[in-house]
Structure formats: C-alpha cells, structure tokens
Computed example of a mutant assay.
Amino acid sequence: MPIPEHNLNPPFNIVRLSHTELRVTDLAWSRGYYVDTLGLQVTYEDKEVIYLRAMEERGHHCLILRHAPVGEVGVLGFKVWSEEDLDKAEHWFKARDLPTEWVERPYMGRVLKTRDPWGVPLEFYAKMDRLEPIHQKYKLYNGVKPLRIDHFNLFSPNVDNSIKFYGELGFRVTEYTEDAETGRAWAAWMHRKGGVHDMAFTNGTGPRLHHVAFWVPTPLNIIDLLDLMSTTGYVDNIERGPGRHGISNAFFLYIRDKDGHRTEIYCSDYQTIDPDHEAIKWDLKDPQRQTLWGAAAPRSWFELGSTFEGAPVTESDLKSQPIIAP
C-alpha cells in the first residue's frame, strides 16, 4: 500500500509528543529504576504517584509513574499549539464518533481526553506548568543523563491503518518497512517535531506500547548506563543493544522494568523538518534495517509490550516475520 502524502494542513496543530503514564505495581522499585538509575528528575511525589522530567525539559513532567495493581499504560499525551487547537481537536474526534471528555489534570489545566480507533487512550493539552531550567545544573546529571522524551512506539494490528489515521492528524512518515510479498507496511516512523519520529508503529498484537524513548547526549552515556545497570542489580533488565539502527541511524539500548514496560535510550538520529522530506523505504528482510551492524533483535522485542488501560488487543493478520535472533 503506498504511503500517503504528507498532510501539511492538519485539522489542529500538534506540536509534539509530551508525556505518558505508566502504571507500576511497586512504586519504590520503579523510583530506584527511573530516578536513581536512569536519572530522571522528580518534580512531585507522594505514596501513589511520581512525576518526572528530563534535564532539558521545562514542562512539569514527561513521565508519570502511578501505583496500580497491574502494570499497564494509562495514557499517551501530546502538546498542541493553542487552546483553540484543543477545541478543534474535540470537534475532529467527535465527528469521527470517538469519545471526548474535558478534564482538569494536575500541572496541565484543561485537557482533552479521547481514544484513537483502536482504543489507545490519548490526551491533548495546550499549557503545562513551567519549571526553572536545570539543563546547566550539572550536579543533577545522573544515570544515563536523559535530556528529553523522544518518541512512542506502538504495536499495531494494521500499520497501514495507523499511518492513515495519524497521518490525518499531521504526523509525517520519515521511514517505513514494507513487506515485499503483500506490499503492506510492516512498520512506520512518523513525526511532528522534526526528528525521525514522535510516533512509530510496529506490526503485531495490539494496540500495545512497545516502548517510550528518551534522548541522551552521546553513545557513551549508554555505555555508562550499561556499566551501572550490570553492577547494581539490573543486568536482567537489559534486553537489546547497544547498537545503531539502520532505520533512523540512531544509537540505541532497550531495557525493561519490573512490570515489563520497555524504555529505549536513544541518540543521534537526524532532522526531518522540510515539508517535502521524502520517506525512506526498507525491506522487511534487510538485516541492516533493525541494526546497521546486522545484529538481529531478540524474539521478546517482537512479542512483548505493555497493554493500554481499557483497550482490548487483537492479533495482526500480517504474519510476515522479520529476521529474529536465535
């Protein structure tokens, strides 16, 4: 199926991805992992929830850890340009018979709650409480020195349909994987902010969150994190990498927390700001698609993900398989 043309005049203006809420079963363990080990900064915490931001972020939070009986994903959040865009978003989702609700969120004010056609919980806001800059407070830099949230990757039972829906919202395809036998998209990378992606979709049982990614300064920060994790009790949480992707050209590491939530540590992809930027096509069987150096991903990377609160999952009918590590 051909990749749709970029929609340069979307119905409302999404600036970028913003935040996610992960439900976790052991808040103290999660604090040790995301704060003490990865280095995210606490902006608020109590016995039930922890709000976190990365070093370059001025908004109050990019990650919410909320104590819950089951590990799942509460929401994916996006910033829009203005309050007027929030009203336009409500109209657009209502016109497609998708649920809408206005809520007040801590540190965010007026928020539009909705879901995509597959049940993924989404929320949009225009203003989040701003905090003082800390990007030059180098004594606070710990762990992998996370600078900012970078993207979400979701398992999708039909990647072509995901591309179409999010393309209507103005997300633009930068790279994609095609299954040569069927001509269907097996994966796609789509952006709003001018990097390789804010949202990506991978074929599989879904919708489920494959991972949330954080941008770090250099590949050496990833090496430092591996040394730290392997000597502080987290070696079993290392899943894949380090390596360099063919798609995006980024240096990466994948790790998974106690509840199975996957995080990608990520740096050095490229800019895609030009509106006529052409998408790059990869073949599913190209060994350099996953890792430029040719190393295949483990089976867990293609099968394990986090469910979304209230979203039933379905299997994909596209059964084509990429190269999987033995």
Rank of each mutant, 00 (worst) to 15 (best):
R240C: 03
N13K: 15
K94Y: 07
T205S: 09
G170F: 14
L112V: 08
N221E: 04
L253M: 08
P298S: 12
P157D: 00
G119M: 01
E178P: 11
P69A: 09
E132I: 04
A187T: 00
F302P: 01
E84A: 13
E168P: 14
H6W: 15
E45D: 13
V212F: 05
L140R: 06
K281Y: 07
F12Y: 12
F12N: 02
A325R: 07
G109E: 10
Y254Q: 03
H151G: 08
G243Q: 12
A325L: 10
E45Y: 08
P2A: 15
W81T: 08
R130N: 04
D259S: 14
P4G: 13
T37S: 11
E175N: 03
E168H: 13
G109K: 13
T205D: 02
Y107R: 08
D257S: 04
I247L: 13
Q41R: 10
Y166L: 09
L112Q: 08
T177H: 04
E45A: 13
F308C: 03
L220R: 00
V235K: 13
P133R: 08
G204E: 01
M128I: 07
F251H: 14
D224A: 07
G246L: 08
E239P: 05
S320F: 03
D160A: 06
L52S: 12
D116N: 08
